[in-house]
Simulated scan of single mutants.
Amino acid sequence: MQYRYLGNSGFKISEITYGNWLTHASQVENDQAIACVKAALEVGITTFDTADVYANTGAESVLGEALKGERRAGLEILTKVFGATGPKQHNDVGLSRKHLFDSIDGSLTRLQTDYVDVYQAHRFDFFTPLEETMQAFADLVRMGKVRYVGVSEWTADQLRAGAALAKDLGFQLISNQPEYSALWRVIESEIVPTSKELGISQVVFSPIAQGVLTGKYVPGADLPAGSRATDEKGGAGSIQRWLRDDVLTGVQQLQPIAKELHLSMAQLAVAWVLQNQNVAAAIVGASRPEQVRDNAGASGVQIPEESMNRIDAAIGGVVERDPARTAERSPKQREA
């Protein structure tokens, strides 16, 4: 396993990061989830990403139990705040000072730790003054409950405004967590250049495009039994956009590239995002320990330029690149 600095800081994370969106306390039984975390530790993954909204706080609890007894200083734990959890009352959402302070205490209890390494604003809050949010983050850092601050799915302009306020308050934003894969490249034209300028790294999710880039979904064929595309608990809805025949046909053309590089299709997909030097880590999820081990094999892989060009030739026509898609991720009205 290789490790990369996160943003303009001295803090390193494993370039393959284990995440539990859609799995822990949802799609995967707790004993299997714990087995996946143990497999991650065995292959050198030290960074774990979660959020309070995953399984309505359940995912944090499962991760905390799975990591209990491990040396805390040898782990990097990332969680997020924004969405409503619990009873979902009027102050249970957003990036207000009240919600941040209430949420961090709940997350620390569930994760069974005194601090989180990176506390991330899960979305941009259009209803709370950014000054209030950044002051609250600064105070949590000074209280020792948070080591570093990051965000998720913020636009380039939002990153710039947040970074400026953070600097004035004596800390820095060091990470952004966007969706990024060979099929979803919306961060490349605006967010990555801005992040490089500001000293912010990407910690990317869905590098395998919800499993589509493994090649297991074949155009014209029935969906594989037990796959995410058939899971009505949440996975099926998020993967639908990739199940078009033109996308699946292009993905099948990646099979010989992966074979020539002695990689699985999943490893090829994860290694692809790690070729971007602004990416500090690729978040991988898993329902079985063997998936964790396979994904970890992407660490340290260098894909030749010729192979990168062939990947573009195979799927370039179905890639989403519109930078405006990021702005769509932050809600323009309150959940509660």
Rank of each mutant, 00 (worst) to 15 (best):
Q2C: 04
Y3R: 03
Y3Q: 00
G10L: 02
S14R: 09
T17V: 07
Y18F: 15
G19F: 08
A25H: 02
S26F: 03
N30P: 08
I34K: 10
I34W: 06
A35R: 14
G44P: 10
T47V: 01
T47P: 04
D49W: 01
V53E: 08
E60N: 08
L63W: 00
A66F: 05
L67P: 08
G69C: 04
E70W: 09
R71H: 11
R72C: 10
L75A: 09
I77T: 09
T79V: 00
T79M: 01
F82V: 06
G83D: 08
G86R: 00
V93T: 10
G94T: 15
L95M: 06
L100F: 07
T109A: 15
T113A: 15
D117M: 14
Y119W: 01
T128Y: 06
T128D: 07
E131P: 10
E131T: 12
M134H: 05
L140H: 09
V141E: 00
M143G: 14
G144S: 03
G144M: 02
R147A: 14
R147G: 12
V149K: 10
A156Q: 13
A166C: 13
L169M: 13
I174S: 06
S175C: 05
A182M: 14
A182E: 07
W184E: 06
S189H: 02
E190L: 13
E190F: 13
E190I: 13
G199A: 05
V204K: 03
T214M: 00
Y217H: 08
Y217C: 01
V218K: 12
G220L: 11
G220D: 08
G226S: 02
S227P: 09
D231M: 01
E232W: 08
G234R: 06
G235D: 03
G235M: 00
I239P: 01
W242H: 13
L243S: 07
D245Q: 02
V251H: 06
Q252I: 03
Q253L: 14
L254F: 11
E260Y: 03
E260K: 13
M265W: 04
A271E: 04
A271Q: 08
L274E: 05
V279E: 12
V279I: 12
E290N: 15
Q291L: 12
V292I: 15
D294I: 12
G300Q: 08
I303Y: 10
P304K: 07
M308L: 15
N309K: 15
D312A: 11
R321D: 03
P331H: 13
